[in-house]
Design a protein around this nucleic acid. Structure first.
Lengths: 332, 332
DNA sequence: CTGAAAGCGCTTACAG
DNA sequence: CTGAAAGCGCTTACAG
């Protein structure tokens, strides 16, 4: 029974010869309205395909049912899982999820946050860029924010993050325990908090002498960049016998580089990835990797935004676990 | 300079001793306002961290800047790419992307569409479930919709889809040309349009005799389901020497099943996947697969919604291409 | 170039 | 249990 022009509460009220306030209350199941009146009104509303106007409701109530998710990259499996879990939590509570990707650009971050502020978002889950603009920081102070994964010193908001230093120490320790001495690292820019923490965790185990630092490569989270870094790292003398990754998006590049150089895993070098997933067991003959509790972290975000009941403890920092498969072994 | 309570146009007008209509015009860069007035107003607005209220704007203009993306599963790489591309197209046009996942459930689809209708979404990109509810169909008639990938006979909206029959024929033909005779198929439910078209394309090449149909397995788009189907398919006598997949989410299950049975690819059977991606070249020693033009399809959606200029032709159906790697060869 | 006024579709105290 | 009224923050014809 959809009409071209959406029908309004006022029109329904006119048809029924009632005040539109009564219609509004009936549609919101207000206790003061009689059952019979409610039934009549709701029937007519359904018949005419009445749909409430959320802009009008938001204007009146000064809040919307929108929650924002602002992340660098939806193609990163980690964020994909977060998006899925958050969307699943939002749907049954009639919350809408607004998704923006920043590609780690502060200008895109700023416009995403502006849009959410304009929309009077109820909450925002944000994985901040390395350098949010002053405008972004000012706007964030006016929103209910959760910092996901990364954090920025000037954003005063609860954090939901991975114990990355712990995790990367786990990765490095695994290779050391297997007997590796020359261990390389390819990871993200250390300007974002996670990049710094991951490198730090790695170095806390292998040491910080110049010799070791020469086996560290930092590059953007793209496969082609990682491939370049890998080729460069493996070109020199005293090639690493083990390699630790600090980003999921570096995996494909390293595997491509290894294929190009004809290096086998784990015969020629051992590899520890970052992040698990459906396909990861089938990479590199079974990629040893750090698994992150994406689900729990997304739940923690949802709980902090009041979307779901907090499930027991809600630690700010979640510990990754090392999943040992067949891409790591003692050096030849 | 952010205040707790957001500042409004009226308050700015009072401070300046002007009419609030003038302030509104200045902030919207209306040509009739003098440069000097604009400057003063915009300066004050910036100083007070003025942010327009999008609910008020939407209420007045009877439209929002929201576009909806309603898909079954964000973890499916195909949809991830679409989401990324659409988000990238939306951002510079100050459009917001509302993401809902349906998990192929008509009730979730209905509430997602209801939310978008309430929000007066400018456009909706929808990959419909197999059986949208009558309510959903009625609401869709009131929205500007593009049907992505799948289509439903009762939804009257432009389609952006893959020539799946063509693509799966390509997959099957590849194995036939290599000399395979016993070829299996694992794919999606045929109740969704793509499931039917893919199976049809496969059968158009291998034939529809009962012998062949016994090598077809239909299962939900989950790895565990695909693994079960695979084990079942490979258990019988006259095991297929080649296998074609009709869903990206079946890949992990089949690889897990093959590992469990100790079957090597391509020595023991050849495998053709569905959908390409960063990691796919590193699966199964180089997975031969159908590559879909996700980027172009997302652009076509954006163009149909008026978000971007149509780039030359805009075919409704996009042809996948077969990327031959090392997971397929002549049968032993 | 600027102002006064109406109104978008709701919600919600206040009356009765 | 229902109604009359005000108002949320904008935009935009209509005047001048």
């Amino acid at each position: 029974m959809a009409t071209r022009e959406p029908i309004t509460i006022k029109q329904l009220a006119t048809m029924l010869g009632m005040a539109h306030s009564t219609v509004s209350r009936a549609l919101n199941d207000h206790p003061a309205i009689s059952a019979e009146t409610k039934r009549r009104i709701q029937e007519l509303a359904a018949h005419h395909g009445y749909v409430p106007n959320s802009a009008a409701r938001s204007l009146k109530t000064a809040k919307s049912r929108i929650i924002g998710l602002v992340i660098p990259d939806i193609e990163n499996r980690y964020y994909t899982t977060i998006a899925k879990t958050l969307a699943d939590a939002a749907a049954p509570r009639s919350r809408q999820m607004m998704l923006s990707t920043t590609d780690d650009r502060p200008d895109r971050e700023q416009s995403a946050i502006l849009n959410l502020l304009e929309a009077q978002a109820e909450g925002v889950v944000l994985a901040p860029t390395a350098d949010p603009t002053p405008e972004t920081l000012a706007m964030l102070a006016r929103l209910d924010v959760v910092q996901l994964l990364r954090h920025h010193p000037q954003i005063d908001a609860p954090r939901v993050e991975v114990a990355d230093d712990y995790g990367l120490a786990l990765s490095a320790r695994h290779l050391v325990d297997l007997g590796h001495v020359r261990i390389g690292y390819i990871g993200n820019l250390s300007r974002v908090s996670t990049g710094a923490a991951r490198l730090d965790g790695f170095l806390s185990v292998v040491g910080r002498d110049p010799e070791t630092l020469r086996r560290v490569r930092i590059c953007p989270p793209r496969a082609d960049a990682a491939e370049g870094a890998f080729l460069d790292l493996m070109a020199g003398p005293d090639r690493p016998t083990g390699l630790v990754l600090g980003s999921a998006r570096h995996t494909a590049g390293v595997l491509a580089g290894a294929a190009r150089l004809g290096l086998r895993i784990p015969e020629d070098f051992s590899l520890v990835g970052y992040g698990d997933g459906e396909l990861v067991p089938h990479l590199a003959n079974g990629l040893t990797t750090l698994a992150l509790p994406e689900q729990e972290m997304a739940d923690a975000c949802a709980a902090l935004l009041g979307l779901i009941e907090p499930a027991g403890e809600r630690p700010a920092r979640f510990r990754p676990t090392l999943v040992v498969r067949r891409s790591t072994r003692a050096p030849a």
